[in-house]
Simulated scan of single mutants.
Amino acid sequence: MARRIRQSPPRSGHRCFSNSTDSGLTWGNEMGPKYLTVDEVAAELNTTIRFVRRLIEERRIAFHHIGRHVRINRADLDAFVAAGRVEARRAA
């Protein structure tokens, strides 16, 4: 006896994981804070990876552990850079 497989009608409003904004899902800057890897931070600061890891070890920059991975929030990186700013001297 042959079995008949019932096919469901195609759904018109289903959600899919794509870059399309009409699906109801958004990917990108709307998801919240941007976390950077150690490699990305080193590239952003134009320094070595070892320097960034030393900053993390000495707790000189805020960071997050996500599992065994280390991530640095974009706002924390901007705050670190702003805190290191030195104003120019004025001529007397």
Rank of each mutant, 00 (worst) to 15 (best):
R6W: 06
Q7K: 15
P9S: 06
R11L: 14
S12V: 13
S12F: 15
G13L: 15
H14Q: 15
F17N: 03
F17R: 04
F17Q: 02
F17M: 08
S18W: 10
S18L: 10
N19Y: 04
N19P: 00
N19K: 03
S20H: 08
G24K: 11
L25D: 04
L25P: 02
T26M: 10
T26D: 06
T26N: 07
W27K: 04
N29M: 13
E30Q: 11
E30G: 11
E30W: 14
P33F: 14
K34E: 12
K34F: 13
Y35L: 15
L36M: 12
V38S: 02
D39W: 04
D39P: 00
E40L: 03
E40W: 02
V41S: 02
V41D: 00
A43G: 12
E44L: 10
E44S: 11
L45C: 11
L45Q: 03
N46W: 06
N46C: 11
T48R: 12
I49H: 09
I49G: 02
I49R: 14
I49P: 00
I49S: 02
R53H: 04
R54A: 06
R54E: 06
R54G: 02
L55P: 00
I56N: 00
E58V: 08
E58Q: 12
R60Q: 13
I61T: 02
I61C: 02
I61Y: 03
A62K: 05
H64K: 13
H64R: 10
H65P: 00
G67S: 01
R68T: 02
R68Q: 05
H69K: 14
V70P: 00
R71F: 08
I72M: 05
N73L: 14
N73V: 01
R74K: 09
R74F: 07
A75Y: 11
A75T: 12
A75F: 11
D76V: 03
D76G: 02
D76N: 09
L77R: 03
D78Y: 09
A79W: 04
A82W: 07
G84H: 08
G84P: 02
G84E: 04
R85D: 04
E87S: 13
R89C: 09
R89Y: 15
R90P: 00
R90I: 13
A91F: 15
A91P: 02
A92P: 05
A92V: 03
